[in-house]
């Protein structure tokens, strides 16, 4: 099993043209074995690119192909509208990897989803996507660093650290059920808690790796949730122990404001919730390998 996406997931890639990022990533995902069933482009409805049928709108693509997930990598100024278009077309799972969406647009789109399109889950924006190894890969994660078969579920706020986490586990022969990158923006569509809850409910996931970073209070909220609602073992690493306050560390959301959002506060909260807290990605990988071996 896996969470959010599996071998039955059918993906429509929004904003596809012969030179778009969407096509590039869509083809990579298809090569991994993901069912990429459609693309959209308002000017190219009825065409076919690399064997992918193109529709003018997401609604038409869903109607014709039964797509149940969408993949958005369009430029920031178009991304919020693309998310709403997918939701309005009834797509239940929308992955948006676009980086640099204005926070106002992101907050508005998120709240519109909550109020008007409760049936749609947004992953991202500004995230690497999601991979259920061997079943489905939507986004930019390199499929060959993931290992099918579980038993570890990974959820991460950072892109390359997600790869690092996959790598640390795969190298030790420990597979993953699903690896979710929730992204480093201030208003992520899917939270740590959403993923922790889904992993807890997934029978094949037996342990959870959570990669956090400085800024906001998502890790502290996750810690509270873990304390009350997660029985499976959790290993965590939080990046940014040495980050200076008041500076955005690459991600729009990665900023320590005053004394809030420090890595130390997050690690303390997680440790208090019974999480195994590692000081670097390698240590996190080793701790998880230990746990998995003990699970037998």
């Amino acid at each position: 099993m896996s969470i959010f996406v599996d071998e039955n997931t059918k993906v429509v890639v929004q904003g596809i043209s012969p030179t778009s990022q969407g096509l590039y990533h869509g083809l990579r995902n298809r090569a991994y074995g993901t069912h990429v069933v459609a693309g959209t482009n308002p000017k190219r409805g009825g065409e076919e690119i690399e064997g992918i049928p193109i529709f003018a709108t997401v609604a038409e693509a869903v109607e014709a192909t039964g797509a149940n997930a969408s993949f958005i990598s369009v430029p920031p100024k178009f991304a919020a509208d693309a998310i709403i278009e997918a939701a309005a077309a009834g797509v239940p799972f929308v992955v948006c990897i676009t980086e640099g969406i204005p926070a106002q647009d992101e907050a508005l789109a998120y709240n519109r989803l909550v109020r008007e399109f409760a049936g749609t889950r947004l992953l991202g924006p500004n995230c690497p996507g999601i991979i259920s190894p061997g079943r489905c890969n939507i986004g930019i994660t390199s499929g060959d660093i993931a290992l099918p078969g579980g038993p570890v579920g990974i959820v991460s706020r950072s892109g390359t650290l997600t790869y690092q986490a996959l790598h640390e586990l795969s190298q030790q022969g420990v597979g993953q059920t699903t690896c979710v990158g929730i992204g480093g923006d201030p208003v992520p569509g899917t939270s740590f808690i959403d993923c922790l809850g889904a992993f807890e409910a997934d029978p094949d996931t037996r342990a959870i790796m959570m990669i956090g970073e400085i800024g906001g209070s998502a890790e502290e909220e996750a810690a509270e949730f873990i304390a009350t609602s997660v029985a499976k073992p959790v290993v965590s690493y939080v990046a940014g122990v040495t980050a200076p306050p008041g500076r955005k560390m690459g991600h729009a959301g990665a900023i320590i404001s005053g004394s809030k959002g420090t890595a130390q506060a997050k690690m303390d909260a997680l440790a208090a919730a019974g999480v195994t807290v590692a000081l670097n990605p390698t240590e996190a990988g080793e701790a998880m390998v230990d746990i998995v071996r003990k699970l037998g």
Binding site: S156, R157, S158, G159, T160, L161, T162, Q164, G184, I211, E213, I214, Y237, A239, G240, V241, T242, A243, M249, G250, H251, A254, A263, L279, N280, P281
Partner: peptide, 14 residues
């Protein structure tokens, strides 16, 4: 990647 860059700072520190 921002996360990996931050993590690199941490590991150098450790």
């Amino acid at each position: 990647g921002a996360g990996l860059a931050m993590s690199t700072l941490d590991v150098v520190n450790q």
